[in-house]
Nucleic acid binder design. Structure first.
Lengths: 336, 336
DNA sequence: CTGAAAGCGCTTACAG
DNA sequence: CTGAAAGCGCTTACAG
């Protein structure tokens, strides 16, 4: 690859001049500009991004820490999030450096990435990486709450408790008392938040919460989310009474629907279904169309991007944002 | 941020020594190593990736050119591809720099990215970017065929003609003669390849091809892929006779299924459906489970990664790879 | 095992 | 409008 030096020599100018021709940071006369450009083209010269980054101490790259499960199935939620991040960052001239490594344990090996800022998904409890970024002076925005809630850390998140509360209130208003709740894995904080929200809805209306039967997804028992939904209905429909089921995701709802078809249970006449959705299109393409909660993953990603960009300009920026989830009533629920 | 200089001074050693402690490229005595490490920790020093990259002329980053449609809906195929690329590259210590910009028209603005190699999706006809990468001496692997087929360009791709040929042969063997083919957009090369493959199957068995009715997806008419499937069936089921339908994707098949339900057409008794799938999980979660062609998008991505990694080691590497598509017979087809 | 110095390819005050 | 030179933070022969 030709360097700026090659161009400068052949064009009979200084490196600074060549630099200015490309960066336009200071005016260069037309004749000189033309000569430099033509020599550059002749030599196949392109400015070296790395050298430039080193000199100006900026890369125009945003790091995205998004661990990918070994099973490899990136969820629809993650994809939409990623889309949001990409769109927002691209709009402002930033590129995305994907970091999907599960963890960096060895501090010694930890080297700085060529990024101006970082968006990190699903922070763990007492996540050590957070302070490391702080130490490295790299602007950071989380998607998901930091565990010890810290007023100095920027993040965007849904309010899962609120969301479950709204779903619960809606079902109660429709006259449903006995609910089967196919929750996420037991060890996820989101599962706890949801149960709390649901409980709150029952308490507020003075209805005993023990009408709710909660199950948890378990990789050991359920091969796929769809299996989880299918098997749970097959197994529970005679054991406990319920007129509505709240589904972890729309994939799970697919399994629920399959089971109801086989059992001759009509949706929504005999059973109402609400999914805590993450794939809007799928919800709309099912029959009946699925009543679901839109988590706005793309908005989550875009907002994270927006805040990070602001923070890269002004490092003192701190913003903690709750993105609204919307209950969208379609065809799979009805009032009793 | 502390630099290597700060550490060297405070530890009373040279920069080269500090460098060696971190890179382990030459042996440093234990006492010195300890001192350097402790000073580094004290100062919060992390090696600067950019400076390092400039010095060694390697970034350990792979660029992925994956234009994102404005509608923003990244397809399942793209996601799986991306997953394949990520896994393969991560395994070898490379990171992914996402480039989703539609095009770079202005040659002047085109600057080199901080990458050691590039994977580019869906090359256009006479794609100028290809020679530009060559000029910049950046190893390149395409996902999809280069248009003027060029023996020096590495790529991975499905064989869409072969794939459609197999689907056609399968359906003919099952006794189907009249087929409705819901193809992709008319302007995509993949659409043409498929028609050729299907035609070949008919010719080989000496059956008149005019039993096949081909439609094309059209953004103007169809709001979503599912709409495309739904509307096509609603519209065609009385106009032309067909016992089987070949569907562009499994999303389209969702629409087809919805239409058949409404019309009281039983699948597969009255109608067989084969999808040129891109989302295996969805195919398995539908009812009936969808007979579909697995395009192996993840394999496509992983192979592209593998070839690129090889090429970054040995620039003379050239490999052109056709990844097999597999027809997976599930529940939506039956023999007449 | 360690150091001094040149070099990676840019940018940017400082001068003119 | 342009040039000379220092600097960005590393690595790596070359010496010892």
């Amino acid at each position: 690859m030709a360097t700026i030096d090659d161009v400068a020599k052949l064009a009979g100018v200084s490196k600074g001049t060549v630099s200015s021709v490309f960066s336009k940071k200071r005016p260069i006369s037309q004749p000189v500009t033309d000569r430099v450009l033509s020599v550059a083209k002749e030599l196949g010269y392109f400015p070296n991004h790395i050298a430039r980054s080193l000199a100006i101490k900026k890369t125009m790259i945003v790091g995205l820490k998004m661990p990918i499960s070994k099973e490899g199935s990136t969820t629809q939620f993650e994809i939409q999030m990623l889309n949001g991040v990409i769109k927002e960052c691209t709009k402002h001239g930033y590129r995305i450096l994907l970091d999907t490594l599960p963890e960096h344990e060895d501090l010694t090996q930890f080297s700085s990435d060529p990024v101006d800022g970082v968006i990190m998904l699903n922070p763990r409890k007492h996540d050590q990486r957070i302070e490391r970024f702080e130490q490295m002076r790299i602007p950071l925005v989380l998607v998901g709450r930091p565990d010890p809630l810290e007023s100095s850390i920027s993040y965007v998140d849904n309010d899962n408790e609120q969301l479950a509360y709204e779903v619960g209130s809606y079902l109660l208003e429709q006259g449903h008392r006995s609910i089967l709740f196919l929750n996420a894995s037991a060890n996820m904080t989101v599962s706890v938040d949801r149960v709390n929200g649901l409980k709150k809805a029952y308490e507020e209306q003075g209805i005993p919460y023990d009408n709710v039967h909660v199950m948890n997804f378990d990789r050991q028992q359920h091969a796929t989310p769809m299996d989880y939904g299918y098997m749970s209905i097959m197994q529970m429909h005679e054991q406990v009474p319920f007129t509505a089921v709240v589904s972890d995701t729309d994939r799970v709802a697919l399994g629920i629907l399959r089971a109801t078809r086989e059992l001759g249970i009509h949706v929504p006449r005999d059973l109402s279904i609400v999914a805590l959705s993450n794939d809007v299109r799928l919800a709309e393409e099912m029959s009946p169309k699925l009543t679901s909660v839109e988590l706005s993953a793309e908005t989550l990603g875009a907002e994270a991007g927006r805040i990070l960009i602001q923070k890269m300009k002004d490092p003192s920026t701190v913003e903690q944002l709750i993105v609204d989830a919307q209950l969208i009533v379609r065809e799979s629920t009805r009032s009793l």
